[in-house]
Structures are given as C-alpha cells and as structure tokens.
C-alpha cells in the first residue's frame, strides 16, 4: 500500500476521532444553566430532522420514490411503529415506486 494513501488515511481517521473524543472526555461535568440545558435537549431533534429532510427526497435519485419513502415513513412514525418497521416500510415504498 503506498505511503500517500496511508498518510491520507491517518489524517482523516485522527481528525475524525479527535472531533468525537474531545467533547466526551473534556466535558464530563453536567453543564448548568437553563439555556444550555434546553439547547442540548433540542439538539437531537433538530439535528436528526435537518439531516432527514430534504435529503430523503434526493437519496434514491428520483424525487417520486424519495417523496413516497418520506410520506410512508412519516405516516408509520406517526403511528408509533418501531425503527426497524419504519425503515423497512420506507425502503419498500422507495423500491415499489421505483418500479413504476
């Protein structure tokens, strides 16, 4: 394996790991204050919502199957189906509309 690939690999892996490890190791104490507390409460929702939409619409390469997957997953999630079921239904919706 050539040296330049190993250099790229090392730089990528090291930086990515440090980004993940530093907050876990450096911020062990609970952060006080109502604002920061509330901020951290909202982070997962906002982050996951922003990553899902509109990315799901373009994930399959077709807006139609992407939109179908989104609609079906949303409906299943509203009906409180579990993660695996929702994920599977989204895939099925994308696959079936992709056949059209």
């Amino acid at each position: 394996m050539d040296k330049s690939f190993l250099a790229y690999l090392a730089v990528m892996a090291l930086i990515t790991y440090l980004i993940r490890a530093l907050p876990l190791v450096l911020v062990k104490k609970k952060i006080g204050g109502r604002f920061l507390h509330s901020f951290l409460y909202y982070v997962p929702y906002v982050c996951l919502a922003a990553m899902t939409f509109p990315a799901i619409l373009t994930a399959t390469g077709s807006y139609v199957s992407g939109a179908a997957a989104f609609a079906v997953a949303l409906l299943a999630a509203v009906c409180r189906r579990g993660m695996f079921t929702v994920a599977l239904l989204a895939c099925l919706a994308a696959f079936l509309t992709g056949l059209l």
């Binding site: 996951l48 899902t52 399959t60 989104f70 997953a73 993660m83 994920a87 989204a90 992709g98 056949l99």
Partner: peptide
Amino acid sequence: NVLSALSVALYGMFLAIIIP
C-alpha cells in the same frame, strides 16, 4: 434499484425516533 431503495432506511429510522 435495490441499493437506491435501501438508501432511505436510515432516514426512516431518524423519523421513527423524532416523530412519536
């Protein structure tokens, strides 16, 4: 077409977590 259909799985999972 199977691969592209599978690519929405993770988004479905995210929705199952944040929507309920």
